[in-house]
């Protein structure tokens, strides 16, 4: 499997909730693949959060609408009530606001805590968009485009 295909497959497994498959794929990661996968997950989260908080996540939009953010966090706290250990909701708020003009909020969080928070936000928002969850290729495509912009500073030619 090429590195490219590996990362597509990994994100697809995350999006469809196949945690075991994702973990197996990570066994094949080289050292630098972990950071790449973390970035790709952040890109996917940015794409999905735009359905709720508007366009431009991670591209300079912001500040976030704090009332909508409050509603989002309340929904997530309700949904996460029976999870043990409980999700780190403040980290979710940090990475969400970080995508909308407050990057300093995520700065103190380790990469692992950020990824966990991105994943919590991603899965929660996906639960509201069944078509998107059922068509992971669409999301993977847009997440990769978002990453290209982050890396090159512009869309791919």
């Amino acid at each position: 499997m090429t590195p490219d295909a590996l990362h597509r497959a990994h994100l697809t497994a995350l999006v469809t909730g196949e945690i075991a498959t994702a973990a197996n794929l990570r066994q094949r990661f080289q050292v630098r693949d972990h950071a790449f996968a973390a970035d790709l997950l952040r890109a996917a989260t940015a794409v999905v959060l735009e359905f709720r908080f508007g366009p431009g996540a991670g591209l300079g939009a912001g500040p976030i609408d704090y009332i909508r953010l409050g509603a989002f966090m309340t929904e997530m706290r309700q949904a996460g009530r029976s999870t043990v250990p409980p999700p780190d909701h403040l980290a979710v708020e940090a990475v969400t606001r970080a995508l909308y003009g407050e990057p300093h909020l995520a700065e103190p969080l380790t990469e692992q805590r950020q990824s966990q928070a991105h994943y919590t936000a991603l899965i929660h928002e996906l639960s509201q968009h069944h078509w998107l969850k059922a068509n992971p290729d669409h999301l993977v495509f847009h997440a990769r485009k978002r990453m290209t912009v982050w890396i090159l500073g512009r869309p791919e030619e």
């Binding site: 500040p63 704090y66 403040l90 940090a94 606001r97 407050e102 300093h104 909020l105 103190p108 969080l109």
Partner: peptide
Amino acid sequence: PAELAAFTKRLHDKHYSPERPFEALRAEA
């Protein structure tokens, strides 16, 4: 919230360093 966000940014700039992972959002919280 917007005022509070600006306050949080100031706290981050004042206290955060890689050796001291001060989480300004926890202060805001």
